[in-house]
Every structure is written in structure tokens, then in C-alpha cells.
Design a protein around this nucleic acid. Structure first.
Lengths: 222, 222
DNA sequence: AATATTGTTTATCATATGCTAAATTAAATT
DNA sequence: AATTTAATTTAGCATATGATAAACAATATT
């Protein structure tokens, strides 16, 4: 029995060695995502290696420098995370704007309100990486601006062709968007207690904002 | 001329040495705030010393460990930053709730939407410091809950005595609060372009939220 | 002016940390 | 089975980094 266990354990301990280059690389990236998300990019390569059950120099076989690994992590987490179908969803005027926004934030939060995503994003921002500004630009152009336009339509305001979206209109949507994002910051960065019914929060907030904007409109505020 | 310049330069370089212990300590804390806010708590003590024009071991005369200095920075930045008069302001029902919230966020943002405050706060959160949760608790108890109560009154809902503030009501206010806070995150962490008229943003958001909530109420949603 | 006090620097230690070169060995190829 | 290929480890370099002890020197005290 002991023999069997030993051989089994041996296998369990050693069998994972000598992966194919592709598998090992992917494994490293995967673990690096968790690792850097937890402690930031100051984390030591030796500790990362330990978590992978490999030696530290092996990391350098796959990534020439730590910075290269970090950039790979960025790519893995942030590339192609914005689904183009979301913009389509938002513009679908056969549905109520309330439902569209609810659906959108359900999808959006599933993709981005994750422990790794949120934390790496904030670490990256504090580091002064270009990533965040680039991401914000995309969010603004492909998501928030369309939302502004749908709000225009919802409230019966002039179309974008007649009058471009103003800075304040965009900021209004940013506060909603940022407020919902901040829910994830409270949860994953501060480890604070938050409501466990995020869709309910979205629904309530969206209702309030839409009703509020519509009410402002009826009082003659474009 | 060269002589005069030399002696002058010498003076300029050396005259600031040998401060009183109190002055030196304060000077170190002050610089440490900027230093850690920029690069995080991983910043090297040697670099901090260089910026202070002192040698690195001198830091350890005033702070036994780096961690001690960091905690001192926390105290300096976060202790007594919440002005009790804000809660009073918020409860002053002789004024419109819109004006009260506008004033409150003017004061609150002046105190906390600062480069150092925001960044140290986020660095601290990512580090897992208790600071953030403690701060959040205070914000919730002394600011957001009162706001919830005022909203109840504003909308003509039952008082808190009759029915405690629900989780969703608090979350609604958190999204507004967090959304406004996120304005500062975009500015000071992502270095993104934001509207330079924050009071206008506040005014607009507050109007929308208040109108929206009131409108929901009139449709029978407490 | 001599002495005591204390703010500051010099020199240094121990460990951490990114990274490299060469040796080793598991797996693929012949 | 012998040989080649390539994944992995061992050993170690160079510099970074928090921290300490002792020497030094500006200021205060006598």
C-alpha cells in the first residue's frame, strides 16, 4: 500500500514536469494573472515560480524579462474583453432602454467585475500604464456614447446629428457607469460588504437615472 | 564671481541641514506623502531620502521601520478628514436637499479628491490595509445613511423609525457617491480627461437622482 | 572657551531580487 | 538502444534594499 501510494504520489508530484512549451507558457501566464492581481507587479518572480512548482529561472526561458510577463498578463486580461455585441444590444430600440441597460451591465460586470480584472486594472492605473486611458477611450466611444444617444432618444431630446453629446451628458453617464464599477472596487479591492444582488442594484440605479433624466426633460432641460 | 557663486551654492546646499527634530520629522512625513502617493509603498527609502536632501539612515532615526513611516503617512492623510459639520449640513432641512448635497460634495471633494488622498487610498486598499474598510464604515454611518434618511424625507417615504434603510437604498446612494468618487479616480489615477467643472457634474447628478427617486415614489415604490 | 547634547553622515551588513550560463535529464527521433 | 532535442534545474552574479552601529559635527549648555 505504501509502495502504491508512494508511486502514486511520486507520479502526482513529478508527472506535471516537462510540459510542452505552449502548455507551460500558458500555465505561467495563468498563475501570473492571479499572482500579480493579489500582490501587484512588485511580486517576486521566485514566489511566482514556487506557486507554479517550477524553478525561477524557468520563467526566464519563456519570458525574457519580468516586464514581458507583465505585458503578457495585460494582453491576456484586457484584449478582446469588450464584446462588440454589447453596443448592438444597447442600440436595439425594440426593447426598453431599462432592459437594455440591465442586460448590458449584467454582461459587462460578468466580464470585468472580477477579482483579477479589477485589481490588475487599478494596479496598472497607479503604475501610470497607458492601458487604462486606452481602455477608457474605448469604453467611452463604443459604450458610453451610445448610451448617451439612447438616453437622448428615450427622453425625446434632439438627436446627435442636431446637437453633439455635451461633456456634462457624458459625465452624467460616467457617474452611473463609475458608480456601478465602484461596486466592484468596494468588493474586490476594499473587501467591503456589498449587496449580493448586483442585478437588483443595476435595475434600481438605471430606473432612477432614466426617470430622473426624463423628469428633467419634462421641465425643459435638454 | 566663481568664488561667490560657490559659496552661495554651498550655503544653499548646506544651510537646510540640522533642523530641529520636530521640523525634520514633519518634513519627512510631508515628503513621504508625496513620494508614496506617486509610486506606492514599494518606493525605496534611499530615493525618499534623496528627495529630502538627507541620507537614508537619517530616516531611521525618526521612524524605526519603513512600515512605521507608512503608518504615519496614513495617520497624517486620513485622520480627522471627515468633518462632523458635513453631517449637520446634510440634515439641515431649512435648505433644499439638492443644495445641501451640492454643498456637501463641494466640501467632501475638496478634502478627499486630491492626488495624494486618492492614490494613497487605492494603494492602501490594494495592500489589504484595514484603513479602507474602517473609512468606509465611517462614511456609511455618518454620511451615506444620513443622506438616505434625507432622501426618505424628500420623497415623503416612511421615516427610519418606521422602516430601517434597506440594503438597496444604501446601494443606490453608494452608486451616486462612488460614481462621483470615480471622477477623482479617473482624474488622479488614470490621468484621464475629466470635466473641469465638478460642481456642475454634482449638481446635474444630484438633480437626476433626486428627481428619479421622487418619480419612482410617485409610482408607488418606497 | 570647554563641554554636553543631539542631529546627521559614513560605512556596512544581510537579505532580496532580476537575471544568466552551464549542467542535467525527460522525451522525441533515429 | 543510441542519439538528438528541448524542457528544467543548479549555481551564481550584480545590484537593490531595509536596517544598524559608530563616527562626526552643529548647536546648546555650562
Amino acid at each position: 500500500m505504501t509502495k502504491a501510494m508512494n508511486s502514486k504520489r511520486k507520479k502526482a508530484t513529478k508527472v506535471r514536469r516537462r510540459l510542452s512549451a505552449n502548455d507551460r507558457e500558458q500555465q505561467i501566464v495563468e498563475e501570473a494573472i492571479h499572482f500579480f492581481a493579489e500582490g501587484g507587479f512588485g511580486g517576486q518572480t521566485r514566489e511566482l515560480a514556487q506557486r507554479l512548482n517550477i524553478t525561477q529561472p524557468l520563467l526566464y526561458r519563456y519570458f525574457p524579462t519580468k516586464q514581458d510577463l507583465i505585458e503578457r498578463v495585460f494582453n491576456e486580461v484586457y484584449i478582446n474583453r469588450i464584446n462588440p455585441s454589447w453596443a448592438t444590444l444597447l442600440r436595439d430600440r425594440t426593447r426598453s432602454l431599462h432592459d437594455r441597460l440591465g442586460d448590458f451591465y449584467r454582461h459587462y460586470s460578468e466580464a470585468t467585475y472580477r477579482y483579477e480584472w479589477i485589481r490588475l486594472y487599478m494596479f496598472s492605473g497607479l503604475r501610470g500604464e497607458i492601458l487604462n486611458r486606452r481602455y477608457i477611450r474605448i469604453v467611452e466611444d463604443t459604450l458610453l456614447m451610445p448610451i448617451c444617444e439612447e438616453i437622448r432618444d428615450y427622453c425625446g431630446w434632439p438627436s446627435v446629428d442636431e446637437k453633439p453629446i455635451t461633456e456634462l451628458e457624458l459625465e452624467q453617464v460616467w457617474v452611473m457607469h463609475g458608480g456601478l464599477f465602484y461596486y466592484a472596487v468596494r468588493k474586490h479591492i476594499y473587501h467591503s460588504e456589498v449587496s449580493d444582488d448586483f442585478p437588483a442594484v443595476v435595475s434600481q440605479v438605471v430606473t432612477t437615472v432614466l426617470e430622473g433624466l426624463q423628469s428633467r426633460m419634462s421641465k425643459g432641460k435638454p
